[in-house]
Write a protein that binds this DNA or RNA. Structure first.
Lengths: 234, 234
DNA sequence: GGCGAAATCTGACGGGTCGTCACATCGTAG
DNA sequence: CTACGATGTGACGACCCGTCAGATTTCGCC
């Protein structure tokens, strides 16, 4: 294979400390420029929701924003860089939510509620951001290091928080010490991530989202605490 | 966005009942033709192992096979169709293996061994076929219906077999009847699929494959049987 | 052994996308 | 109102894809 252009994949979006982006030629854009950049970002988000990621063309985003392809390249070295900007914003907000849920109590009936909240929370996070989440999953499986970094950050903080809980349960003697906490947490987060990203496929096969959430909550609770869940109220 | 060429994505590889493929013009190839086709397939497999799927170019496969791009198009309408042929072969063989494992006994210490065998088996299946598995995961998440069909077939038979076991455990009163068997099985298979496809990522973070297998086996056994595993020998 | 016809292979081309660059336009400070 | 920096764009070269007419190889048959 002839070497392909490495393109800008290896470089990060040039953004200064305040988040003000620089244009391709290194100059700092003014009001008009930033407005155009923002408009391009929003159009990218829209296109991502209505078109397949693979079919996303610069010319379409530019046209949607009422400008020319060359203008797009003035603000982003490529389409991925624009998406990274969007994904970073989403990851920021979404991560807090789920990690926070892990911190709740894991004992008894409250613990079951925690597990349910996590399962539902993760599913909702995915449903609310599926265009970006999908791209994140997709490109992370390939080589794109920036997307992978975001995804890893998103999942890793979650995994570590969960591992900490598992470690606590092990020390309290409620959970078997034979399991590696990080490995176990990784397995659980994998479950959440994969199920969330394939909800539509499951629905297609007649498997209801509510049932999936219940099963995931069950697995979560059981695996984290090492206990059978106390019988629920419903 | 202007409509993109639908290309041959919607059409299946023309293959007659005996598996003998037809060339692009509909004629049945002779010895030389079939040899060339096979050579192209093997080269596709090699390229897939050493190059990213996205960077796979027809011209490279052809060159590797010591022929011209036009020859490739004589036997396959596009690169994906060639990969589908490879993936189908793999799925055939791999599916039997894992589904067969599910049929083993799930009671007591033997059950733990069954769970471990499944976890290890799935991981090995992935490790042995990662170039194809990766493409399957990748393109299924997008729209390619042929890849998705193969992946669904692979996972669905597995899921249904597992659901059947869970249903049995429920009827025997060992597992809570609150959970939908298919949903639960789907969750478990998701776990296996996602962990297997991210083994390298986990290793990168210092999480050992052996620990992942143990954790997955634990989750599998616990969730399927509803019992704590009997204490192991090691 | 030679000769057509069928099978197989290939060079070259039209069509399309990508990213860049020189230049046009805008808008604002003086 | 003018000049200059900031912003926007048409058009171009490079690249990849899939096709097609024609060249080359193989094979059955005399």
């Amino acid at each position: 294979m002839t070497e392909r252009a490495v393109s800008a994949e290896e470089f990060d979006d040039p953004v200064d400390s305040e988040g003000a982006p620089r244009a391709s030629d290194g100059r700092v854009p003014g009001r008009r420029g930033r407005a155009t950049r923002q408009r391009l970002l929003e159009c990218t988000r829209e296109m991502l929701a209505s078109h397949s990621y693979r079919d996303l063309r610069v010319v379409d985003i530019a046209r949607q924003a009422g400008t020319s392809p060359a203008t797009f390249y003035q603000y982003f070295p490529d389409v991925n860089t624009a998406i990274v900007a969007l994904a970073e914003e989403m990851a920021e907000q979404g991560n807090d939510l789920v990690v926070q849920l892990v911190g709740r109590s894991w004992s008894g009936a409250t613990g079951v509620q925690t597990a349910e909240a996590i399962a539902r929370g993760y599913v909702q996070l995915w449903e609310q951001n599926w265009p970006l989440m999908r791209v994140l999953d997709l490109t992370s499986a390939e080589g794109e290091h920036r997307f992978r970094a975001i995804r890893v950050r998103l999942l890793n903080q979650f995994t570590e928080a969960l591992a900490e809980v598992i470690r606590g349960e092990q020390e309290a003697g409620r959970q078997t010490a034979e399991l590696d906490p990080m490995a176990t947490a990784g397995v659980l987060v994998s479950m959440l991530a994969h199920v969330a990203s394939h909800l539509y496929g499951f629905e297609h096969y007649g498997i209801r989202t509510a049932d999936l959430e219940r099963s995931m909550a069950h697995v979560l609770y059981t695996t984290v605490t090492g206990q059978k869940p106390p019988k629920s109220k419903d």
